[in-house]
Design a protein around this nucleic acid. Sequence first.
DNA 1: CATGAGGAACTCA
DNA 2: TGAGTTCCTCATG
Length: 518
Amino acid sequence: MEYEKMLYMPASEMPLSPQLKPHQFQAQTPPDQYSSYADNFDLSLLPQESAPIPTTVFQYNAPQIKVECAWDSQQQLQQQPTAPYTIPSSQQHQLIPPPAYPHSAYPSPQSSPLQSEFAAYGLGRFGGSYDSLNSPSPSLEAVSIKQELHILPPSPPESNCETPSPRSSCGESIKAEPLDADIESLIDLNSLLQQQSLQSQQSLQDTKPDHQLLRECLEDTSFQKRHNLKPLALESFIGGLAAVRGDIEPVISLALEHAKREADAICAELQISQDPNGWSPAQVHAWLRSTLAQFRLPPVADLELHFCENGAALALLSEEEFVRRLPESGSTLHAQLEIWKMAYADQPAHQQHSQPPASTDLWPASYAMPNLDLDYNEDSEDDDDMEADAPVAPLNGSSTSPPATTASNGGTATVKRPNGGRTGGGGSHIHLWQFLKELLASPQVNGTAIRWIDRSKGIFKIEDSVRVAKLWGRRKNRPAMNYDKLSRSIRQYYKKGIMKKTERSQRLVYQFCHPYNQ
DNA sequence: CATGAGGAACTCA
DNA sequence: TGAGTTCCTCATG
Protein backbone atom coordinates (compact mmCIF):
# COMPACT_ATOMS: atom_id res chain seq x y z
CA MET A 1 0.00 0.00 0.00
CA GLU A 2 1.37 3.32 -0.94
CA TYR A 3 -0.12 5.23 1.89
CA GLU A 4 1.89 6.14 4.84
CA LYS A 5 0.62 6.84 8.19
CA MET A 6 0.93 9.92 10.19
CA LEU A 7 0.27 7.66 13.08
CA TYR A 8 3.86 6.72 13.17
CA MET A 9 5.22 10.13 12.83
CA PRO A 10 6.93 11.79 15.71
CA ALA A 11 4.70 14.34 17.28
CA SER A 12 7.00 17.08 16.19
CA GLU A 13 6.38 16.17 12.60
CA MET A 14 2.72 15.76 12.85
CA PRO A 15 1.43 18.04 10.17
CA LEU A 16 -1.95 18.60 11.61
CA SER A 17 -3.71 18.19 14.78
CA PRO A 18 -7.07 19.68 15.42
CA GLN A 19 -5.49 21.00 18.52
CA LEU A 20 -3.21 23.17 16.58
CA LYS A 21 -3.72 26.79 16.73
CA PRO A 22 -3.52 28.61 13.46
CA HIS A 23 -0.02 29.79 14.05
CA GLN A 24 1.03 26.31 14.97
CA PHE A 25 -0.51 25.01 11.89
CA GLN A 26 1.27 27.42 9.72
CA ALA A 27 4.52 26.87 11.43
CA GLN A 28 4.41 23.20 10.69
CA THR A 29 3.54 23.39 7.09
CA PRO A 30 5.54 24.64 4.18
CA PRO A 31 4.70 28.29 4.47
CA ASP A 32 4.90 29.13 0.83
CA GLN A 33 2.40 26.57 -0.26
CA TYR A 34 0.06 25.96 2.54
CA SER A 35 -0.01 28.94 4.76
CA SER A 36 -2.22 30.72 2.36
CA TYR A 37 -4.80 28.07 2.83
CA ALA A 38 -4.84 28.34 6.53
CA ASP A 39 -7.21 31.21 6.18
CA ASN A 40 -9.69 28.82 4.81
CA PHE A 41 -9.44 26.62 7.79
CA ASP A 42 -12.54 26.91 9.82
CA LEU A 43 -11.37 26.78 13.38
CA SER A 44 -14.84 26.52 14.65
CA LEU A 45 -14.83 23.01 13.33
CA LEU A 46 -11.94 21.95 15.41
CA PRO A 47 -12.51 19.80 18.41
CA GLN A 48 -11.97 21.46 21.68
CA GLU A 49 -8.61 21.14 23.23
CA SER A 50 -10.05 19.10 25.96
CA ALA A 51 -11.07 16.50 23.47
CA PRO A 52 -8.10 15.94 21.25
CA ILE A 53 -8.10 13.38 18.59
CA PRO A 54 -5.80 10.44 18.64
CA THR A 55 -3.17 11.98 16.47
CA THR A 56 -1.85 13.90 19.38
CA VAL A 57 -1.09 10.91 21.49
CA PHE A 58 2.24 10.38 19.87
CA GLN A 59 3.70 12.64 22.40
CA TYR A 60 3.20 10.11 25.10
CA ASN A 61 5.41 7.22 25.88
CA ALA A 62 2.92 4.78 27.06
CA PRO A 63 4.08 1.36 28.09
CA GLN A 64 4.00 -1.27 25.46
CA ILE A 65 1.85 -4.29 25.70
CA LYS A 66 1.78 -7.42 23.73
CA VAL A 67 -0.43 -7.72 20.82
CA GLU A 68 -2.26 -10.66 22.26
CA CYS A 69 -3.74 -8.46 24.90
CA ALA A 70 -5.24 -6.02 22.51
CA TRP A 71 -6.31 -8.75 20.25
CA ASP A 72 -8.01 -10.62 22.99
CA SER A 73 -9.77 -7.60 24.22
CA GLN A 74 -10.77 -6.78 20.74
CA GLN A 75 -12.22 -10.16 20.23
CA GLN A 76 -14.12 -9.85 23.38
CA LEU A 77 -15.44 -6.54 22.38
CA GLN A 78 -16.46 -7.74 19.02
CA GLN A 79 -18.06 -10.74 20.52
CA GLN A 80 -17.56 -12.66 17.38
CA PRO A 81 -17.40 -16.25 18.42
CA THR A 82 -16.97 -17.30 14.87
CA ALA A 83 -14.42 -14.70 14.00
CA PRO A 84 -12.10 -16.57 11.70
CA TYR A 85 -9.19 -14.25 11.87
CA THR A 86 -6.45 -15.03 14.25
CA ILE A 87 -2.88 -14.03 14.37
CA PRO A 88 -0.51 -16.91 14.03
CA SER A 89 1.67 -16.95 17.06
CA SER A 90 4.70 -16.80 14.86
CA GLN A 91 3.58 -13.46 13.56
CA GLN A 92 2.39 -11.89 16.67
CA HIS A 93 5.59 -10.07 17.33
CA GLN A 94 6.61 -9.48 13.82
CA LEU A 95 5.94 -6.74 11.47
CA ILE A 96 3.02 -7.90 9.53
CA PRO A 97 2.36 -6.46 6.14
CA PRO A 98 -0.85 -4.57 5.90
CA PRO A 99 -3.71 -6.52 4.49
CA ALA A 100 -4.44 -6.37 0.88
CA TYR A 101 -7.37 -4.14 0.48
CA PRO A 102 -9.42 -3.95 -2.61
CA HIS A 103 -9.58 -0.21 -2.56
CA SER A 104 -5.91 0.27 -2.66
CA ALA A 105 -5.83 1.34 -6.21
CA TYR A 106 -7.06 4.83 -6.21
CA PRO A 107 -7.24 7.07 -9.13
CA SER A 108 -4.34 9.08 -10.14
CA PRO A 109 -5.56 12.46 -8.97
CA GLN A 110 -3.93 11.66 -5.72
CA SER A 111 -0.72 12.25 -7.42
CA SER A 112 -1.52 15.83 -8.03
CA PRO A 113 1.38 18.07 -7.21
CA LEU A 114 0.21 19.19 -3.86
CA GLN A 115 -0.71 15.79 -2.75
CA SER A 116 2.57 14.43 -3.81
CA GLU A 117 4.20 16.97 -1.66
CA PHE A 118 2.10 15.91 1.22
CA ALA A 119 3.06 12.38 0.59
CA ALA A 120 6.60 13.49 1.11
CA TYR A 121 5.53 14.59 4.50
CA GLY A 122 4.49 11.13 5.29
CA LEU A 123 0.85 11.84 5.12
CA GLY A 124 -0.14 9.72 2.26
CA ARG A 125 -3.65 8.60 2.11
CA PHE A 126 -4.63 9.65 5.51
CA GLY A 127 -2.97 12.92 4.93
CA GLY A 128 -5.34 13.40 2.12
CA SER A 129 -7.91 14.61 4.48
CA TYR A 130 -5.39 17.01 5.74
CA ASP A 131 -4.59 17.96 2.25
CA SER A 132 -8.17 18.47 1.59
CA LEU A 133 -8.27 20.89 4.40
CA ASN A 134 -5.48 23.00 3.26
CA SER A 135 -4.95 22.89 -0.38
CA PRO A 136 -6.84 24.35 -3.22
CA SER A 137 -7.47 20.82 -4.32
CA PRO A 138 -9.30 19.75 -1.31
CA SER A 139 -11.58 17.02 -2.16
CA LEU A 140 -9.74 14.22 -3.76
CA GLU A 141 -8.74 12.61 -0.59
CA ALA A 142 -11.96 13.60 0.92
CA VAL A 143 -13.72 11.61 -1.67
CA SER A 144 -11.67 8.63 -0.87
CA ILE A 145 -12.96 8.92 2.59
CA LYS A 146 -16.32 9.89 1.38
CA GLN A 147 -16.56 7.00 -0.93
CA GLU A 148 -15.33 4.69 1.67
CA LEU A 149 -17.88 5.93 4.06
CA HIS A 150 -20.44 5.72 1.44
CA ILE A 151 -20.08 2.11 0.63
CA LEU A 152 -20.45 -0.98 2.58
CA PRO A 153 -17.46 -2.99 3.52
CA PRO A 154 -17.02 -6.14 1.56
CA SER A 155 -19.18 -8.97 2.45
CA PRO A 156 -17.70 -11.56 4.69
CA PRO A 157 -16.14 -14.57 3.06
CA GLU A 158 -19.34 -16.45 3.44
CA SER A 159 -20.95 -14.22 0.93
CA ASN A 160 -18.63 -15.58 -1.59
CA CYS A 161 -19.53 -14.26 -4.91
CA GLU A 162 -19.22 -17.59 -6.44
CA THR A 163 -21.81 -18.93 -4.18
CA PRO A 164 -24.34 -16.27 -3.56
CA SER A 165 -27.28 -17.40 -1.68
CA PRO A 166 -30.08 -15.06 -2.44
CA ARG A 167 -32.55 -16.61 -0.17
CA SER A 168 -30.30 -17.10 2.73
CA SER A 169 -29.13 -14.53 5.12
CA CYS A 170 -25.69 -15.10 3.81
CA GLY A 171 -23.39 -12.41 4.94
CA GLU A 172 -25.37 -11.71 7.97
CA SER A 173 -23.66 -13.90 10.43
CA ILE A 174 -19.95 -13.66 10.59
CA LYS A 175 -18.40 -10.27 10.77
CA ALA A 176 -14.74 -9.95 11.32
CA GLU A 177 -12.28 -7.67 9.76
CA PRO A 178 -8.98 -9.08 8.64
CA LEU A 179 -7.56 -5.65 9.11
CA ASP A 180 -7.64 -6.11 12.78
CA ALA A 181 -5.25 -8.97 12.58
CA ASP A 182 -2.47 -6.82 11.35
CA ILE A 183 -1.91 -4.70 14.31
CA GLU A 184 1.52 -5.22 15.63
CA SER A 185 3.07 -4.53 18.94
CA LEU A 186 1.08 -1.90 20.62
CA ILE A 187 1.16 0.94 23.01
CA ASP A 188 -1.60 0.90 25.44
CA LEU A 189 -3.21 4.26 25.29
CA ASN A 190 -6.49 3.18 26.56
CA SER A 191 -6.37 5.05 29.78
CA LEU A 192 -5.40 8.19 28.02
CA LEU A 193 -7.95 7.77 25.32
CA GLN A 194 -10.69 6.90 27.67
CA GLN A 195 -10.23 10.28 29.18
CA GLN A 196 -10.36 11.91 25.83
CA SER A 197 -13.23 9.91 24.66
CA LEU A 198 -15.51 10.70 27.51
CA GLN A 199 -16.21 14.03 25.96
CA SER A 200 -16.03 13.29 22.31
CA GLN A 201 -18.06 10.19 22.82
CA GLN A 202 -20.95 12.20 24.01
CA SER A 203 -21.28 14.10 20.83
CA LEU A 204 -20.36 11.30 18.55
CA GLN A 205 -22.09 8.38 20.03
CA ASP A 206 -24.83 8.52 17.51
CA THR A 207 -22.54 8.16 14.60
CA LYS A 208 -21.41 4.99 13.03
CA PRO A 209 -17.68 5.08 13.23
CA ASP A 210 -16.45 2.11 11.42
CA HIS A 211 -14.40 4.02 8.84
CA GLN A 212 -12.78 1.06 7.40
CA LEU A 213 -10.72 3.03 4.99
CA LEU A 214 -9.19 5.10 7.70
CA ARG A 215 -8.75 2.07 9.83
CA GLU A 216 -6.86 0.46 7.06
CA CYS A 217 -4.69 3.48 6.60
CA LEU A 218 -4.03 3.84 10.24
CA GLU A 219 -3.16 0.23 10.60
CA ASP A 220 -0.71 0.15 7.77
CA THR A 221 2.67 -0.47 9.26
CA SER A 222 4.85 0.11 6.26
CA PHE A 223 5.61 3.60 7.33
CA GLN A 224 6.67 2.43 10.69
CA LYS A 225 9.05 -0.03 9.15
CA ARG A 226 10.69 2.61 7.10
CA HIS A 227 11.07 5.11 9.87
CA ASN A 228 11.47 2.84 12.81
CA LEU A 229 8.77 4.55 14.72
CA LYS A 230 6.77 3.30 17.56
CA PRO A 231 3.47 1.93 16.54
CA LEU A 232 0.27 2.65 18.29
CA ALA A 233 -2.53 0.55 19.45
CA LEU A 234 -4.68 1.68 16.65
CA GLU A 235 -7.44 -0.53 17.63
CA SER A 236 -7.45 1.16 20.93
CA PHE A 237 -8.63 4.39 19.46
CA ILE A 238 -10.34 3.49 16.28
CA GLY A 239 -12.86 0.92 15.73
CA GLY A 240 -12.01 -1.63 18.32
CA LEU A 241 -12.97 -0.03 21.53
CA ALA A 242 -16.37 1.39 21.50
CA ALA A 243 -15.45 3.88 24.14
CA VAL A 244 -13.06 5.70 21.87
CA ARG A 245 -14.31 4.91 18.44
CA GLY A 246 -15.59 8.37 17.92
CA ASP A 247 -12.22 10.00 18.21
CA ILE A 248 -11.45 9.73 14.56
CA GLU A 249 -14.66 11.42 13.62
CA PRO A 250 -13.41 14.96 13.98
CA VAL A 251 -10.72 14.33 11.43
CA ILE A 252 -13.14 13.05 8.89
CA SER A 253 -15.55 15.75 9.75
CA LEU A 254 -12.92 18.36 9.18
CA ALA A 255 -11.94 16.98 5.84
CA LEU A 256 -15.44 16.64 4.58
CA GLU A 257 -16.55 19.92 5.95
CA HIS A 258 -13.78 21.64 4.14
CA ALA A 259 -14.58 19.86 0.93
CA LYS A 260 -18.13 20.93 1.37
CA ARG A 261 -17.18 24.52 1.71
CA GLU A 262 -14.94 24.35 -1.29
CA ALA A 263 -17.70 22.97 -3.40
CA ASP A 264 -20.09 25.55 -2.06
CA ALA A 265 -17.76 28.25 -3.15
CA ILE A 266 -17.36 26.77 -6.58
CA CYS A 267 -21.09 26.42 -7.00
CA ALA A 268 -21.58 30.02 -6.07
CA GLU A 269 -18.76 31.22 -8.23
CA LEU A 270 -19.76 29.29 -11.29
CA GLN A 271 -23.46 29.61 -10.70
CA ILE A 272 -23.95 25.93 -11.08
CA SER A 273 -25.91 23.34 -9.26
CA GLN A 274 -24.37 21.03 -6.74
CA ASP A 275 -25.83 18.26 -8.82
CA PRO A 276 -23.66 17.49 -11.80
CA ASN A 277 -26.68 15.95 -13.47
CA GLY A 278 -28.19 19.35 -13.72
CA TRP A 279 -25.36 21.03 -15.53
CA SER A 280 -25.70 22.32 -19.00
CA PRO A 281 -22.82 21.78 -21.41
CA ALA A 282 -21.65 25.31 -20.72
CA GLN A 283 -21.72 24.66 -17.03
CA VAL A 284 -19.83 21.46 -17.59
CA HIS A 285 -17.14 23.42 -19.33
CA ALA A 286 -17.06 25.99 -16.56
CA TRP A 287 -16.72 23.29 -13.98
CA LEU A 288 -14.01 21.50 -15.92
CA ARG A 289 -12.01 24.67 -16.31
CA SER A 290 -12.44 25.50 -12.69
CA THR A 291 -11.31 22.05 -11.66
CA LEU A 292 -8.33 22.12 -13.96
CA ALA A 293 -7.27 25.41 -12.44
CA GLN A 294 -7.98 24.14 -8.98
CA PHE A 295 -5.65 21.24 -9.46
CA ARG A 296 -3.14 23.29 -11.37
CA LEU A 297 -3.54 21.12 -14.36
CA PRO A 298 -2.73 22.43 -17.79
CA PRO A 299 -5.63 24.26 -19.32
CA VAL A 300 -7.34 22.64 -22.24
CA ALA A 301 -7.89 25.02 -25.07
CA ASP A 302 -10.51 23.09 -26.96
CA LEU A 303 -12.37 21.83 -23.97
CA GLU A 304 -15.68 22.16 -25.74
CA LEU A 305 -14.49 19.73 -28.35
CA HIS A 306 -13.49 17.18 -25.80
CA PHE A 307 -16.60 17.45 -23.73
CA CYS A 308 -19.82 18.22 -25.48
CA GLU A 309 -21.99 16.48 -22.91
CA ASN A 310 -24.24 18.00 -20.40
CA GLY A 311 -23.74 17.14 -16.77
CA ALA A 312 -25.86 14.02 -16.84
CA ALA A 313 -23.98 12.56 -19.73
CA LEU A 314 -20.71 13.64 -18.23
CA ALA A 315 -21.57 11.76 -15.10
CA LEU A 316 -21.92 8.60 -17.12
CA LEU A 317 -18.44 8.75 -18.52
CA SER A 318 -15.95 6.32 -17.16
CA GLU A 319 -12.58 7.30 -15.89
CA GLU A 320 -11.09 5.60 -18.89
CA GLU A 321 -13.08 7.85 -21.14
CA PHE A 322 -11.90 10.91 -19.25
CA VAL A 323 -8.33 9.78 -19.56
CA ARG A 324 -8.79 8.96 -23.19
CA ARG A 325 -9.94 12.47 -23.86
CA LEU A 326 -7.55 14.20 -21.52
CA PRO A 327 -4.68 11.87 -20.70
CA GLU A 328 -3.03 14.36 -18.46
CA SER A 329 -5.93 15.46 -16.36
CA GLY A 330 -8.77 13.10 -17.15
CA SER A 331 -8.31 11.00 -14.11
CA THR A 332 -8.31 13.95 -11.81
CA LEU A 333 -11.38 15.41 -13.40
CA HIS A 334 -13.19 12.13 -13.18
CA ALA A 335 -12.28 11.68 -9.54
CA GLN A 336 -13.38 15.18 -8.74
CA LEU A 337 -16.63 14.62 -10.52
CA GLU A 338 -17.12 11.53 -8.42
CA ILE A 339 -16.78 13.71 -5.36
CA TRP A 340 -19.49 15.99 -6.53
CA LYS A 341 -21.74 13.16 -7.49
CA MET A 342 -21.37 11.44 -4.19
CA ALA A 343 -21.61 14.59 -2.18
CA TYR A 344 -24.81 15.54 -3.88
CA ALA A 345 -26.20 12.04 -3.74
CA ASP A 346 -25.59 11.98 -0.05
CA GLN A 347 -27.80 14.91 0.60
CA PRO A 348 -31.24 14.38 1.90
CA ALA A 349 -33.73 14.88 -0.86
CA HIS A 350 -35.13 18.02 0.65
CA GLN A 351 -31.73 19.59 0.61
CA GLN A 352 -30.86 18.71 -2.92
CA HIS A 353 -30.96 21.58 -5.27
CA SER A 354 -30.81 21.78 -8.94
CA GLN A 355 -30.23 25.45 -8.91
CA PRO A 356 -27.13 27.24 -7.91
CA PRO A 357 -26.89 27.61 -4.19
CA ALA A 358 -28.30 30.72 -2.73
CA SER A 359 -26.20 30.40 0.33
CA THR A 360 -23.04 28.66 1.27
CA ASP A 361 -24.70 26.31 3.62
CA LEU A 362 -26.62 24.07 1.34
CA TRP A 363 -24.57 21.05 2.05
CA PRO A 364 -26.20 18.97 4.67
CA ALA A 365 -24.79 17.90 7.92
CA SER A 366 -24.76 14.43 6.56
CA TYR A 367 -21.92 15.42 4.36
CA ALA A 368 -19.81 16.79 7.11
CA MET A 369 -20.68 13.84 9.26
CA PRO A 370 -21.88 11.33 6.78
CA ASN A 371 -24.54 8.90 7.47
CA LEU A 372 -22.18 6.07 7.89
CA ASP A 373 -23.70 2.85 7.02
CA LEU A 374 -20.70 0.86 7.90
CA ASP A 375 -22.50 -1.47 10.14
CA TYR A 376 -22.18 -4.28 7.74
CA ASN A 377 -20.32 -6.08 10.38
CA GLU A 378 -23.21 -5.90 12.68
CA ASP A 379 -25.75 -7.34 10.48
CA SER A 380 -28.08 -8.50 13.10
CA GLU A 381 -28.85 -4.86 13.51
CA ASP A 382 -28.20 -3.88 10.00
CA ASP A 383 -31.68 -3.52 8.82
CA ASP A 384 -32.70 -1.70 11.91
CA ASP A 385 -29.87 0.68 11.51
CA MET A 386 -30.68 1.30 7.96
CA GLU A 387 -34.17 2.17 8.84
CA ALA A 388 -33.15 4.19 11.79
CA ASP A 389 -30.47 6.34 10.35
CA ALA A 390 -30.21 5.66 6.77
CA PRO A 391 -33.51 6.78 5.64
CA VAL A 392 -30.89 8.28 4.06
CA ALA A 393 -30.88 10.60 1.53
CA PRO A 394 -32.84 8.96 -1.05
CA LEU A 395 -29.85 9.10 -3.12
CA ASN A 396 -30.24 10.75 -6.36
CA GLY A 397 -28.54 8.61 -8.84
CA SER A 398 -25.55 10.50 -9.84
CA SER A 399 -25.46 8.93 -13.20
CA THR A 400 -29.11 8.42 -13.47
CA SER A 401 -29.66 9.39 -16.96
CA PRO A 402 -32.85 7.96 -18.27
CA PRO A 403 -32.74 5.17 -20.73
CA ALA A 404 -33.60 7.61 -23.44
CA THR A 405 -30.01 7.79 -24.31
CA THR A 406 -28.45 7.31 -27.60
CA ALA A 407 -24.92 6.48 -28.31
CA SER A 408 -24.68 8.02 -31.66
CA ASN A 409 -21.51 9.93 -31.27
CA GLY A 410 -18.94 7.39 -30.60
CA GLY A 411 -20.13 6.20 -27.29
CA THR A 412 -20.97 9.54 -25.86
CA ALA A 413 -24.39 9.39 -24.41
CA THR A 414 -26.74 12.10 -25.35
CA VAL A 415 -29.33 12.26 -22.72
CA LYS A 416 -32.82 13.37 -23.34
CA ARG A 417 -33.72 15.61 -20.51
CA PRO A 418 -37.11 17.16 -21.02
CA ASN A 419 -36.70 19.76 -18.35
CA GLY A 420 -33.03 20.10 -18.60
CA GLY A 421 -32.90 19.40 -14.94
CA ARG A 422 -32.03 16.48 -12.84
CA THR A 423 -32.94 13.07 -13.88
CA GLY A 424 -35.43 11.08 -12.04
CA GLY A 425 -37.39 14.07 -10.89
CA GLY A 426 -37.83 12.78 -7.39
CA GLY A 427 -34.21 12.44 -6.50
CA SER A 428 -34.37 8.76 -5.64
CA HIS A 429 -35.55 7.42 -8.91
CA ILE A 430 -32.61 5.58 -10.23
CA HIS A 431 -32.89 2.55 -12.39
CA LEU A 432 -31.18 -0.60 -11.41
CA TRP A 433 -29.20 -0.74 -14.59
CA GLN A 434 -28.00 2.78 -13.95
CA PHE A 435 -27.07 1.93 -10.45
CA LEU A 436 -25.09 -1.05 -11.63
CA LYS A 437 -23.26 1.05 -14.13
CA GLU A 438 -22.56 3.53 -11.43
CA LEU A 439 -20.95 0.83 -9.36
CA LEU A 440 -19.06 -0.42 -12.35
CA ALA A 441 -17.79 3.05 -13.03
CA SER A 442 -15.94 3.13 -9.73
CA PRO A 443 -13.88 -0.03 -9.76
CA GLN A 444 -11.54 1.35 -7.17
CA VAL A 445 -14.42 1.54 -4.80
CA ASN A 446 -16.71 -1.23 -5.90
CA GLY A 447 -14.36 -3.50 -7.72
CA THR A 448 -14.74 -6.21 -5.17
CA ALA A 449 -18.48 -6.20 -5.52
CA ILE A 450 -19.01 -5.83 -9.21
CA ARG A 451 -16.65 -5.50 -12.11
CA TRP A 452 -16.48 -5.46 -15.82
CA ILE A 453 -15.65 -8.69 -17.56
CA ASP A 454 -15.70 -7.15 -20.97
CA ARG A 455 -16.32 -3.46 -20.88
CA SER A 456 -16.75 -3.12 -24.62
CA LYS A 457 -19.44 -5.78 -24.70
CA GLY A 458 -21.07 -4.59 -21.55
CA ILE A 459 -20.42 -7.85 -19.77
CA PHE A 460 -20.01 -7.60 -16.06
CA LYS A 461 -19.91 -9.90 -13.12
CA ILE A 462 -21.39 -9.43 -9.73
CA GLU A 463 -18.57 -10.55 -7.52
CA ASP A 464 -20.31 -10.00 -4.27
CA SER A 465 -24.00 -10.45 -4.70
CA VAL A 466 -24.83 -9.76 -1.10
CA ARG A 467 -22.99 -6.52 -1.09
CA VAL A 468 -24.39 -5.30 -4.35
CA ALA A 469 -27.85 -6.14 -3.17
CA LYS A 470 -27.31 -4.28 0.04
CA LEU A 471 -26.00 -1.28 -1.79
CA TRP A 472 -28.99 -1.35 -4.05
CA GLY A 473 -31.31 -1.74 -1.13
CA ARG A 474 -29.76 1.17 0.58
CA ARG A 475 -29.99 3.29 -2.50
CA LYS A 476 -33.64 2.49 -2.83
CA ASN A 477 -34.22 2.51 0.89
CA ARG A 478 -35.23 -1.11 0.77
CA PRO A 479 -33.57 -2.71 3.76
CA ALA A 480 -34.94 -6.12 2.87
CA MET A 481 -33.33 -6.14 -0.52
CA ASN A 482 -31.32 -9.21 -1.31
CA TYR A 483 -29.77 -10.69 -4.37
CA ASP A 484 -32.80 -12.82 -5.06
CA LYS A 485 -34.89 -9.74 -5.54
CA LEU A 486 -32.21 -7.80 -7.26
CA SER A 487 -31.65 -10.59 -9.74
CA ARG A 488 -35.36 -10.73 -10.34
CA SER A 489 -35.23 -7.11 -11.33
CA ILE A 490 -32.30 -7.81 -13.57
CA ARG A 491 -34.23 -10.60 -15.21
CA GLN A 492 -37.03 -8.16 -15.89
CA TYR A 493 -34.51 -6.41 -18.04
CA TYR A 494 -34.29 -9.41 -20.30
CA LYS A 495 -37.72 -8.69 -21.66
CA LYS A 496 -37.02 -5.01 -21.92
CA GLY A 497 -33.84 -5.48 -23.83
CA ILE A 498 -31.75 -3.70 -21.28
CA MET A 499 -29.76 -6.71 -20.17
CA LYS A 500 -29.27 -10.28 -21.13
CA LYS A 501 -27.42 -13.29 -20.01
CA THR A 502 -24.15 -13.85 -21.73
CA GLU A 503 -23.97 -16.29 -24.56
CA ARG A 504 -22.28 -18.80 -22.38
CA SER A 505 -24.35 -18.36 -19.33
CA GLN A 506 -22.30 -17.91 -16.23
CA ARG A 507 -23.46 -17.43 -12.76
CA LEU A 508 -23.70 -13.82 -11.73
CA VAL A 509 -22.55 -12.65 -15.10
CA TYR A 510 -24.81 -10.36 -17.06
CA GLN A 511 -24.52 -8.25 -20.12
CA PHE A 512 -25.91 -4.88 -20.99
CA CYS A 513 -27.69 -4.74 -24.28
CA HIS A 514 -26.94 -2.03 -26.73
CA PRO A 515 -27.06 0.90 -26.22
CA TYR A 516 -27.06 0.42 -22.50
CA ASN A 517 -23.54 -0.88 -22.64
CA GLN A 518 -22.65 2.53 -23.98
C1' DC B 1 -29.07 -27.74 -2.48
C1' DA B 2 -27.91 -23.36 -4.50
C1' DT B 3 -29.01 -20.81 -8.15
C1' DG B 4 -31.48 -19.07 -12.20
C1' DA B 5 -35.79 -18.23 -14.57
C1' DG B 6 -40.10 -16.40 -14.69
C1' DG B 7 -45.26 -15.78 -13.24
C1' DA B 8 -48.17 -13.02 -10.47
C1' DA B 9 -49.56 -9.72 -7.23
C1' DC B 10 -48.10 -5.87 -5.09
C1' DT B 11 -46.02 -1.04 -3.91
C1' DC B 12 -44.60 3.38 -5.12
C1' DA B 13 -43.75 7.67 -7.46
C1' DT C 1 -48.38 3.37 -15.75
C1' DG C 2 -43.62 2.05 -15.45
C1' DA C 3 -40.24 0.17 -12.54
C1' DG C 4 -39.27 -2.31 -9.49
C1' DT C 5 -40.42 -5.47 -5.11
C1' DT C 6 -41.97 -9.55 -3.02
C1' DC C 7 -43.22 -14.16 -3.03
C1' DC C 8 -43.67 -18.07 -5.25
C1' DT C 9 -42.86 -22.46 -8.18
C1' DC C 10 -40.14 -24.91 -11.19
C1' DA C 11 -35.84 -26.26 -13.74
C1' DT C 12 -31.06 -27.17 -13.77
C1' DG C 13 -26.44 -28.63 -12.52
